[in-house]
Amino acid sequence: MSDIQKILPRDAFIDEIYAAAKANPNIYFITADLGAKALDRFRRDLPGQIIHGGISEQNVMDLAAGLAQNGKIVYTYAMAPFMTLRCYEQIKVAVASMFLPVTIIGNGVGYSYNDAGPTHYATEDISCMRALGGIEILTPGDTVSTVATAKHSHTHPAFRYVRLDRAFLPPVYDENDRRFLTDGLVEIEPGEKVCILTNGYMLQTAREAKTQLAASGLKPGLIDVFRLRPIDAKVLARVLARYERIVTLEEHFLSGGLGGAIVEAMADAGILKLVKRIGVADTYLFDNGGRQYMHRKAGIDAPAVAQEITRFCQTRA
């Protein structure tokens, strides 16, 4: 693993914004009191372009809209559950309805903040955020796509939600691969008959499940749902064409989540295939023991996923 892959997603993202902000005084970064190693340098070198909005997400979002109305390229940053749901109506009214280019960075999606409890989990953020008009939702799954997402966010300012994991993520893409940005959906590992659509941290879980399934002769393809909204119908049809059955996997409730987005897009595109959606248990978990343990409790660890896929592939069409 090279050095670049040992960087936390938030540091990789913020380092790119820092470099851009140094060259462009119109870039503003507002934090609701979430720090990052990379943010220390930003605060030191660019005090005029960083705003501590207080632990006041509603204020942060209205400020962001006010700045964006004056032509600024604006980022808001906090833990994912707070930067989305705590100020949801501000996002709708001040940002979405006025079509303003604000990039909302949610750090620590899913059970990233394991051992913290439901206040810090984001297992509803996809369904809530994708309900908003005109939003782009991106979930980088490794360092290459995280840095490219950051670059894309300042070269193409838009109303956007970037879902960052809290953990180190292993490599998925080659240094120069940009298919995730152009296509949104990328077949990163081809397979046979069945494929798994997932993103972010769960790409690793899917890979582990694939390894476990290899013994029984199943070779699922793996598709990165980097851009959850909008989903390009033509790309979706192309990547699903060779598969008979579709599995979606998410560290999120099933209601309106990644799987929901995929089946909606399939229905709209007239793609008729069997689908199995795998997501977290429909409840709030109060467990310690780390993320893998949480995944076991929630029914989304690799053995559970492998078992679900095996069962799904045995059902008759």
């Binding site: 705003i51 509603q58 204020n59 979002m61 209205d62 400020l63 962001a64 809209a65 006010g66 700045l67 964006a68 109305q69 004056n70 600024k72 109506e89 501000q90 009214v93 001040a94 309805s97 006025m98």
Partner: peptide, 21 residues
């Protein structure tokens, strides 16, 4: 008209964003 209002409690935050600029 500067901004959308009608949902209460937004104008002051939006205005403050403008004032920062």
């Amino acid at each position: 008209i500067e901004a959308i209002t009608g949902s209460l409690g937004h104008g002051i935050g939006l205005a403050t964003g403008h004032c920062l600029v």
